[in-house]
Structures are given as structure tokens and as C-alpha cells.
Amino acid sequence: MSEHHSAEEIKKSVRKYIMVFVALLVGTVVTVLANEIHFSSIAMTVFVALLIASVKAFLVAGYFMHLISEKKMIYAILAATAFFFVALMYLTIWSLDKGSLIHIKHVT
């Protein structure tokens, strides 16, 4: 968020914070309720749970952490972080593929 704010801007932001707070409370309840639904596959269950969590994470990062209106330098840092995070997850999932070079064989 820019470093100088008028009182009016801050008051507008406060209203947004309250709306985000309510959305996060609702999101938490939806997460728990979605867990009661039996989806057709485990992949769908995981997808729904992570989708709701991602929406909540976006609200926290975007509004509480002011990422929707930040400086380019912070976006650059986060872009690099996202790149390495995605690479880490890609390697993790790739290692589960039995045909891949980095597959870990389980000893039973």
C-alpha cells in the first residue's frame, strides 16, 4: 500500500477489512461443510478444499497484507518466490510418477 494515506482512504479500507473478515469466517464454515460432502473422487475433495483455502489466502494477502496495491519491488520478490515454490511442488509431484527420473522407490 502506498505510504501516505488520507483519513478518508483509511476509513474506506476499514470497511473493506470488515467485509474480508466476514468472508473469511464464511469461508471457514464452507470449508468444514464441504468436508461433509462425499465427492466422487479424492482428487475432487482435495481440489475443493484447496480451492476454498486459496480464496481465503487471496483475501488475506490481497487486502490485509495490501498486496493488491503494492510496490513493484514486492511483486518482483513474490514472483521469484512463486517460481521456486511451484518448482518445488512440481518436483514433488514429478517424483511420484513411477516412470520419472526422480521417482522414490518405497521399501516395504
Partner: peptide, 22 residues
Amino acid sequence: SGLFWHFVDLVWIFLFPVLYLL
């Protein structure tokens, strides 16, 4: 300090479904 605290909240937002629900 608030940015750090929000990050702690963010991590929990993912930990909760992963460890408790899935």
C-alpha cells in the same frame, strides 16, 4: 509485525484443511 502475523494466519489457512479435514 502485522505482515508477519498475516503470514502466520495464511499458513494456518492451508494447514487446517490439510491436517484436519483431508
